[in-house]
Amino acid sequence: MTKIPVHLDINGTHHHLELEPRVTLLDALRDRLGLTGTKKGCDHGQCGACTVHVDGERVLACLTLAAQTEGRTITTIEGLAREGELHPVQAAFLEQDAFQCGYCTPGQIMSAVACIREGHAGSDEEIREYMAGNLCRCGAYPHIVAAVRQAALEVAS
């Protein structure tokens, strides 16, 4: 199939790509743009490892066609820290040991940033429910909840 031009706005940088329409945002990020922080765990929307923000909302890059996101603003894990300073959620994950192998972590962090922004980090129970779309096989969940709770308080203050 012929490639189509796709313009993507990622982490404040404009990218021009020629892509087959079937290329997902996840594969465009990882294979075409070298933004490999976003991970592929299942490729079917079942694990959350590929969570990125499109227009500020958390979505799954594996079920999003790259072409669909033209004209929208994309943020990935690489775009979260500003000038080398960790985002409060990143800092909280580090401090609370909210990961082990680290593979699901970029997705967890992108999800957590949005979870707090949405107002769904009001209690541990709410955090557990609204972070349920991000699997962690290492079982870092208790520390993930602690990190989201900590970051939510910091963001609020």
Binding site: R58, V59, L60, L63, S111, Y130, A132
Partner: peptide, 9 residues
């Protein structure tokens, strides 16, 4: 239903 990410899509 589903997850927060899927509900946003």
């Amino acid at each position: 239903a589903a997850s927060a990410q899927i509900r946003n899509m």
